[in-house]
Structures are given as structure tokens and as C-alpha cells.
Simulated scan of single mutants.
Amino acid sequence: MSNLRPLPLIQRVFAALALLVLLAGCTTATPPDSVLAVPAPARKYAAIVVDARTGKQLFEVSSTAQRYPASLTKMMTLYLLFEALETGRVTKETQIPVSDHAASQPPTKLRFRRGESIDVDSAIRAIVVKSANDVAVAVGEYLGGSEEQFAAMMTSKARQLGMTSTVFRNASGLPDDDQHTTARDMAVLGMALRQRFPQQFHYFSESDFMFRGRLVRGHNDMLGRVRGVDGIKTGYIRASGFNIVTSYNADGRNLIVVVMGADSARQRNDHVEALIQRSLSLSVDGAKTRLMFAEQ
């Protein structure tokens, strides 16, 4: 744990916009006078930390309050694509056509022309690393017949996984007033991706990839920042603020950290790092934490 960068000045980082959350109100073993600064505004902020090996909740604030997922939505798009790979419906070489509707999506995207396609392996990397909206929609149309039908499949799968408060309306996470989730549900999805598809989870640790002869770089700055962080996904739209689901896996500890609604990527990442530090310092005490969800 000594490689984790200490954050003694985190409250100054968040400055006047920070809120103080009394950890005594959370299900932890932290002394009641402990406080942790969190990103503002409160109407967007939510967070949860879960021990992914046991399902025990180590920290939460507003973790069941509805929030906009933004590009965290693409985690479910990938879940269904991984299922299609597992069942043999597609292979990593399968070509996915990019429709006019998919190509017309706003950035971030890879910018396809009419009639072009992308192989499944490159599509996964484009969604994970670039958060490419055009590719996510193309995948949804290919698997669902239409993006609307695919969104219904996504919501149905969410219910199967125990994501009780999530509704998907598109494959990308672009703004839709009816598309919502919670920090808790995103933690459930993050754990499900690792547990169900360990052979595919390595994609989430990639920070760049080559496509058509050029290097495409990502924007998950948690990768390489904290030893043990190996994914998963960032997201942002104006309505949501800066979101992230982060997986930590090192020294026998496996955490899923969700932070939603930060004012900037830097605030979000600082807060995730502080939550990882805090969670690793907690003693394992089953009597003072509670199971987040039942075995599925």
C-alpha cells in the first residue's frame, strides 16, 4: 500500500465547493469524528466503495439516489457484447456495420463514413478507451436490431443482475432524461463484469490502442496513477458531472469504487484515490459492514 500517493490536502483541493460527510453515518468502522471531503454539488454527487470479494459495503453517500450514468452506460453495452462473444453469436473478427444513425452521433467518436464497419475486437477497445459513441450505437444496433430494442435488452439485463434502479434508453450514455442509474447499481455492474467475464476484463485496463494506423488515447487517468487500479470506465455529460467506476485489485484486496457528479476529472480522481486509501486502511470486520447485495 505504500505506493499509494498520500492526499493530506484533499480538502484544499476541493476548496470552497467541498462538502463534509460524517463517516459515522456510513457503514464503516471509522471513528465518528472522521470526515472526508467530497466533490460538489450535492445534487449530483454519489459514491460507494464495495469489497468485491465479499460484497461488503465500505463507504457510501447517496448511493441509491438516481443519477445520470453518462458513458458508464457503455459498461452494459460491453456486458451484452461479451455475452455475445461467449455464446458464439459473434467472434472478435466479426465486422459490425456502422449505420448513418451510428455515424451521426456526437463526439467522442471514431468518425466513420457511410458503409464502413469495425471488427468486434476494435469495437471493444474503442468503447473502453475512446468511449466512442458511434461505435457503441453500432454495437447496439447489431445486437438489438435497433438502438431502442438494445436499450430494452440492457434494462432487462440490469434487472437480472440486481440493478434495481437503472433504466437505459441508449447504448452510449448520451443525454436522455429517462436514462438513470445509481452508484450502487454501477458497483453491481462493475463487479458483474469482472466476475462473469474475467477473460475479457483486461480490456478495461487499456489506456490506448491502434486503429487504422493511428494511436487512439483514452481519458481514464486512474490507470497508472494508483498501483492496483485496473479499470473500469469514466463518463461525463453536463447533467451528470464527472463519473467513474474504478476497480482496484492488488495484495489480496479487490475494491469497486464509484464516484459520480464531480465538478472535474481531477476532483473525481482525487476523491477516488482518497477512498481507495481509506478503504485499504480499514480493518476487515464483518460485524461493522453489511452485505451490499445477495448472491445472484
Rank of each mutant, 00 (worst) to 15 (best):
R114C: 08
D100L: 15
A171W: 05
F112G: 08
K157A: 10
E147G: 03
G88F: 03
D134L: 07
M75C: 11
A70N: 05
S63F: 00
Q57A: 03
V61L: 12
S131A: 15
A65F: 10
D51Y: 00
E148Q: 10
T94F: 10
T166P: 07
V38M: 06
R169S: 08
V139H: 08
A152K: 15
D100C: 11
T73K: 01
Q66H: 15
Q160Y: 03
N170W: 06
F82C: 05
L110D: 09
V139Q: 08
R113C: 12
G144S: 02
T54K: 00
Q57R: 13
V38F: 04
G140L: 05
Y68H: 14
A151V: 04
Q149S: 13
Y45T: 13
M76H: 01
K109M: 11
L78Q: 10
R114H: 15
V139I: 07
R114K: 15
S131G: 14
P69C: 02
V129T: 12
A84H: 11
E141M: 01
M76T: 03
S156G: 14
Q105D: 00
E141T: 02
V120T: 14
A132G: 14
E148W: 02
M154W: 08
V98F: 05
A46G: 14
I124E: 13
E60Q: 10
G140C: 04
I127L: 12
S104I: 07
L36W: 00
Y45A: 13
V120S: 12
Y68F: 15
M154P: 10
A42P: 09
K44Y: 07
A84T: 11
V167I: 15
V128K: 05
T77F: 06
Y142N: 08
P97M: 07
M163W: 04
Q160F: 02
G140S: 07
V98L: 09
G144M: 01
T77A: 11
A102Y: 10
A37K: 01
P39E: 00
P39K: 02
D100Y: 14
P107H: 04
L58F: 00
Q57N: 06
L85H: 11
A84Q: 09
P107L: 02
S62G: 13
S172C: 04
L80N: 03
G145P: 05
L161Q: 03
S131V: 13
